[in-house]
Nucleic acid binder design. Sequence first.
RNA 1: GGGUUGUUAGCUCAGUUGGUAGAGCGUCUCGUUUACACCGAGAAUGUCGGCGGUUCGAGUCCGUCACGACCCACCA
Length: 767
Amino acid sequence: MPMEKTFNAAEAEARISKLWIDQKVGRAGANAKPDAEAFSIMIPPPNVTGSLHMGHAFNNTLQDILIRWHRMRGHDTLWQVGTDHAGIATQMVVERELAKAKAPTRREMGREAFLAKVWEWKDQSGGTIINQLKRLGASCDWDREAFTMSGNFPDAVIKVFVDMYNKGLIYRGKRLVNWDPHFETAISDLEVENIEVKGHMWHFKYILAGGESYDYVEKDAEGTVILREKRNYISIATTRPETMLGDGAVAVHPSDARYAPIVGKMVHLPLCDRLIPIITDEYPDPTFGSGAVKITGAHDFNDYQVAKRANLPCYRLMDTRGAMRADGAPYEVSVARAREIAAGSPTSEAEVDSLNLVPEKYRGLDRFEARKQVVADINAAGLAVTVLVKSIDEETGSEALHLEPVVDNKPIMQPFGDRSKVVIEPMLTDQWFVDTGLIVGPALDAVRSGDTVIMPQSGERTYFHWLENIEPWCISRQLWWGHQIPVWYDTEGNHYCASSEAEAYQLALNKARSRNAPASEITAREEGLVKAQMLRGQVLSREVFTEESQVAFLTRDPDVLDTWFSSGLWPIGTLGWPDNTPELQRYFPTSALITGADIIFFWVARMMMMQLAVVDQVPFKTVYLHGLVRDAKGKKMSKSLGNVIDPLEIIDEFGADALRFANAAMASLGGTLKMDTQRIAGYRNFGTKLWNACRFAEMNGVWDGHTTATTPPQVTATANLWIIGETAKTLAEVDAALQDYRFDTAADALYKFVWGKVCDWYVEFAK
RNA sequence: GGGUUGUUAGCUCAGUUGGUAGAGCGUCUCGUUUACACCGAGAAUGUCGGCGGUUCGAGUCCGUCACGACCCACCA
């Protein structure tokens, strides 16, 4: 059958793709020569519930080019494919689906049932993105498809946690963390987006205790007195009035002469029946605002540091949903105890956390509602800093002077959850952390020494900057979908980190045995643990059993790990670690990582740290970072802007080749990637051009009789000699370009060769 | 505030170690007896952001200014 005038991408792609998959052209080691060098790439695992977007299309095209290039030359290639469970994102999607279906909520159905739903959803939608990658033409090893929650992966994750815990690289602590009140979980620093919003700054008066007053003197830069007045208060400013309920002190800079007379004195905390001290700390900036800062240790990162230094109690004001606490004892009882603590009564972290110092009238209010109330109440109490304002009565035209509270309108940077988009609350909670400071060294050294090369080089600077200033990584999430933390607690608050419950019991038993306690007591506890351990395997419910016997059960930490903790192990986890599999030996460390510059911290840096910490090897030799794919005007693609280009629609309209060629041609190092459909159409035309050159050849019987030829024909014609030379030149150019990861140069060379040499000249000669 | 990175033809961009500028798309003119109109032939368009410096010579190196993008941090 003669060739059509134009290439029918839709028909051909389906047919050829099936052939590739059936023939397993992407299987590990396909087309490898004996003793071939290995070339391996780990796909950045897309979210299991996701669908292909332009960024995926771009990213995977580049990987496919590299893999095919190496495979074609007989190297032993592996393109490891798989998906990520994406804790928050997936849990969010499933909860939304449940709501849409008017099904019971996550909390109503409980953990087990909910997780069953998530697995159901995963099985239903998890194939989508994999099938879309196939449509793109990616030549992954489909038989090796991995998932961060399946196969050996969970065991590997747990093993790493336990090992890191045992090495002292993971610890638990009550720290101020970023709390997402929508998902009701802690999140890491990286998952917080700071966005500038319109904010207000209120100014409050904290009245000195005991009716005291002082001379408040303000000087200008030359030291000339510009204000002197007798004050019975200190003025503080805040953008978050509701947090004042938990203030532990007012801080001023030690060099601030204005407040020197009152340092150490007490002030009345407005709306609260409490006194707090005026302390000094380096943190307040004397040139900003009044120079005095209210210190709310439990709800502000800077204040927390001050509170730690000054040994101030940090009173938590909000619940997990960001509402003012309604739990605990009545306010009078709590505040009475707080006064005792302030007077020096011994206390504990746990007791301080249990004290609810939110006055009754604010309890249960949403934090933003509480803010309004607090402002209104402070104004009503006459404790707002005020200014004289002239107003004109519109009807009578008479002027009047009156006092108004000072409220500054100012832009403030506010933290938002990157998934939930709600305002993040600093919250004092118990969490698990990776002590990144202890494992960052090798990750820095590997790039400094060139063991791992980051391209473009500017990426190295970003990498260094972040790692050199690394903060502890909060890895626990109060979610259900994810790797549950392998830690068990006994009734006395001890915890046991182990890879199984049985091991945890063993650890608890060992601990009980090693205690210096009366023999009888140890025995009772031991007995309880052994009994409990035995009974855990039986059908008895815990409730029934605990009622009938006094045994010591261990309970598992309900939290799960940050998704990036597990995806940080993607390179070794997908290759079968901790078993020393042939694949691990053959393909690790991997050759190249192709990924977006936006996840250099989330993923690249963490994979470096984790692999080096676990197997003492870099995970990849080259990191190729590319920019974000934008629309034709350079705008970020987003659903709300309506400028999202769906790669599948592009494939439908222009064919996968056109999309892939456009991707390659745009892949210069650095910069943003502006995706223009006109350009894709241009490369579609290029495909047609090539197609027609072949069609010309076919019409002239070029294929006839040559399919079975065993020896190449003798080349004598000048045109033939010339085009063979051009082909060799182009081959060299493309190889050199790909060696340097210059996909654009390679694409350009091929384009010019096919169109400018083969079609414009060689085909014309042939005529 | 710190960092990274841009500013080259109407648009999107390339330009390796310094030697008086390139591609695709778009525009204009001409062309349709069969490989291809998703085409062919041809054309126009740039003081390479501004200023200063190094050099025989700078889009390319140095300094500085302007505007933009992004990232990180942050003043209550």
